[in-house]
Nucleic acid binder design. Structure first.
Lengths: 138, 138
DNA sequence: TCAATAAATGCACTTCCATTGCATAGATAT
DNA sequence: ATATCTATGCAATGGAAGTGCATTTATTGA
């Protein structure tokens, strides 16, 4: 069992207090978070630091960015089964129109999409919108 | 063969010079356009007018908004085979990473997506990214 | 036809999020 | 210990979406 420190180092990310905190915050969350979410969780820290930390995590492929159609970027840790460094990793995301939360459905792979002749598919973004399990049970 | 005027009236959209121009602009384009694209095409007109015209077209279901992951809303005329008033109309969009253009693949319907128990799917947004036919032929 | 009414347009402004430049603090290596 | 590189914080910018209000333009009805 790797420590977080070891994990970050293995990804060539320098370990700092801030980065550990942000990593733990993302790990606790079961949903994709916005930069503002992180900002609210760490009011002492500067927005820029949080922004750049996320970008670093993204570059090193331990976080992926999600565009769920709300117009605001969200981020989530890449879990096992999520290979974001591979461009063709294609799990889908679910956005709840009720609670506004977005979750990764890592185990749900996107089916093969056919495109017309001459078009080359490199990547697919698929967001399903509706009501999540928590909200539909209400 | 309906005139544009007749078409707009049939959709309960009042005909104005501006609206005709914007409609024609959209009709000429084979790709989804941003508000800025329209703005550049009609430098005399105010941004707000263009914005509200597009919103009107959207409400009346002759234009649909596309979120292609660039972070900028794009718009395209609803063609035959596009039934945007029906929430479950699910054609997909293709975004070219080279020329940055986004096109509707109206004839390509989105396959049925399975979501976990407890989740209710209301809508699906699917964007394929890659290289378009024009760019791949270069 | 003219007045009353409603809709469309234009201008100014606000808000929100993403992003960058630069100075400083902190860590690493020689 | 000092030079060097990275991370952090502050300030500012830019782009896009959206809103309030005044004015112009079109529509309706007397």
């Amino acid at each position: 069992m790797k420590t977080i420190e070891q994990f970050l180092e293995s990804k060539n990310i320098r370990v700092t207090a801030m980065r550990l905190l942000i990593y733990k915050f993302l790990a606790e969350k079961q949903v994709a978070v916005t930069l503002s979410d992180i900002e609210n969780a760490f009011e002492k820290a500067d927005r820029t630091t949080l922004y750049r930390t996320i970008k670093t995590f993204e570059e090193k492929a331990i976080v992926h960015q999600i565009d769920d159609g709300t117009g605001i970027n969200k981020y989530a840790l890449c879990e096992k089964g999520c290979n974001c460094e591979i461009e063709t990793d294609l799990h889908l995301h679910f956005h709840c129109n009720n609670c506004n939360e977005t979750i990764c459905l890592t185990e749900h792979k996107i089916p093969q999409i056919k495109v017309p002749d001459g078009f080359v598919s490199e990547n697919v973004n698929l967001v399903v919108k509706g009501i999540c399990d928590k909200c539909s049970g209400q």
